[in-house]
Write a protein that binds this DNA or RNA. Structure first.
Length: 480
RNA sequence: GGCGACAUGGCCAAGUGGUAAGGCAUCGGAUUGCAAAUCCGUCAUUCCCCGGUUCGAAUCCGGGUGUCGCCUCCA
């Protein structure tokens, strides 16, 4: 099925080519590995993941590349403060990032190149631009992109260069005098004292790459000079993506990316995340404060359409300095919804009855098709989730069904989960011997109608984080 | 100042001309030894406000209010 996406270039929904004609080349802007990325960043990474999974689910072959920014002001400053080499420092945060990626059930991109592994590509790109008269060297040895030489500048952000120039005039710091034009941006930064031992001796001199350069170079190196989709957070539209386009298209004369898709921001408690508002959280903080799992966070991030702001609702207590979050409503809601989905799945495997008619099967297939249509229509995950819950309610209403039908519905859930990535329950090692003994004793006490004893054991299990369910056949348990 | 996005029930959130999906919470019922969990049902005559277009608008247009964002390195 053909996927449509909102293309930032046109600000309209556009259809990709039908699947099968050729593989889709997808590039997404990765993290700067200088700290734990925050929950808003995770919205972007989950979005990229849904995009890639959706493409594959709809029948596309995909090659997904995401960069790791491991050299910039922040990584250099961080490594110096930590007393580590740049590589030691960024490796540490890369490792954290990869661990969290797995927790959030995000598929690893096919390639995750570091910026520092692409110095040669970047230098070559600058040389190419210089040969065309679109890059120039300033007095301090840095290289800048000459925006006046690229007439399409502003096409993505829909900004007018003259307006930018006027706006920048009053705000640009005095140390920017090196540039011919205030709107020009750095391609290569000449070494300065603060860079310490971070530099590369290249044809461009001693220095390090500018931020925008790595994405253009890496996309071209690992994919091609004209890719299909480039994704990122909405705040990267300008200047980052605009500059990527300028660098790439000025050098190659080709369309850098046919599609540009951007995810909107995550709001926390109705506000933009900031440290001063105390609504700034990393995934690891949510794990500690709210007991959130990666699966719950992923679900919460899937409840809104990528192109719209999503609010992570938080209830606070106290004012000013004392203000602290006491309840993460969105995480709680995600937890309840996931629990219900897990119970539904479990019910499918333990309910064995008579055969169901063809109508029931057609009903489920109808929902499966509706979910596919919702995903194909600009990745409408919230609408797809709506259909999924309608499926749940309708199947629950069936008076009876056999094992084969149960297996069929499970297969549909697994199919849909190729995109959602939240329906598979966490792997559980099972009860500890002690808890297993309690669970058995609880059953025995109930058998003997020793209600007081049963209630005591039930309370003990609950303290261990185990909730029991009395059922007609075999009783069950679940983690709280 | 320039440009732009958004405003749907207690919370989250689909829906972009044909009469308000879904989730969480609430409430009622079923089930249960009692619970919990689960299941069923209930839950917006109305979509920020005012005006307009239309047979018909949450959806289109104009005005207002509010929130958020971009205007050189924040997903």
């Amino acid at each position: 099925m053909t996927l449509t996406l909102t293309n930032t270039l046109s600000r309209a929904k556009e259809s990709l080519p039908a699947p099968g004609e050729r593989p889709i080349q997808l590039y997404t802007c990765g993290p700067t590995v200088y700290n734990h990325v925050h929950i808003g960043n995770w919205r972007a990474f989950v979005f990229y993941d849904v995009l890639r999974r959706s493409l594959e689910w709809l029948g596309y072959e995909v090659r997904h590349v995401m960069n790791l920014t491991d050299v910039d002001d922040k990584t250099i400053r961080g490594s110096r403060e930590a007393g580590q080499s740049l590589r030691e420092f960024t490796d540490r945060y890369t490792q954290f990032f990869l661990e969290d990626l797995d927790e959030l059930r995000i598929l690893h991109p096919h390639a995750m190149p570091r910026a520092t592994d692409a110095i040669d590509s970047m230098v070559a790109l600058v040389k190419r631009l210089e040969a065309k008269g679109l890059a120039y060297q300033s007095d301090d040895g840095s290289y800048y992109f000459k925006i006046s030489g690229f007439e399409n500048y502003g096409q993505l952000a829909h900004l007018d260069v003259d307006t930018l120039r006027a706006g920048a005039g009053g705000r640009v710091a005095a140390d920017e005098y090196e540039k011919d034009d205030v709107t020009d941006f750095a391609l290569w930064k000449a070494w300065s004292e603060e860079d310490g031992d971070v530099f590369w001796e290249t044809e461009l001199g001693k220095g390090r790459p500018g931020w925008h350069l790595e994405c253009s170079a890496l996309a071209m190196e690992h994919l091609s000079e004209s890719i299909d989709i480039h994704a990122g957070g909405i705040d990267l539209v300008f200047p980052h993506h605009e500059n990527e386009i300028a660098q790439a298209e000025a050098a190659t004369g080709k369309v850098f990316s046919k599609f540009w898709v951007h995810n909107e921001h995550l709001m926390v408690g109705g506000k933009k995340m900031s440290k001063s508002l105390k609504n700034f959280f990393t995934f690891r903080e949510l794990q500690e404060v709210a007991g959130a799992t990666g699966r719950e966070v992923r679900y919460a991030l899937l409840t809104g359409h990528y192109s719209k702001k999503l609010n992570l609702q938080v209830t606070y207590e106290g004012e000013g300095e004392e203000r602290r979050p006491v309840l993460f409503d969105s995480i709680e809601a995600a937890r309840s919804a996931i629990h219900r989905l897990d119970e539904f799945r479990r019910g499918l495997t333990i309910r064995g009855g008579g055969p169901v008619g063809d109508g029931a099967r057609a009903l489920v297939e109808g929902y499966q098709a509706a979910i596919r249509a919702a995903i194909a229509d600009d990745l409408n995950v919230p609408a797809a989730l709506g259909k999924l819950f309608e499926l749940v309610t309708d199947v629950n209403k069936l008076p009876d069904f056999d094992e084969e039908f149960g297996r069929f519905v499970v297969s549909v859930l697994d199919d849909v989960d190729q995109v959602l990535g939240v329906l598979k329950p966490e792997a559980d090692a099972g009860l500890t011997p002690e808890d297993q003994a309690l669970f058995t004793a609880w059953g025995a006490a109930r058998e003997a109608k020793d209600w007081a004893g049963a209630d005591t054991i039930r309370a003990q299990l609950k303290e261990h984080g185990i909730q029991v369910q009395a059922r007609k056949g075999e009783s069950t348990w679940s983690r709280i």
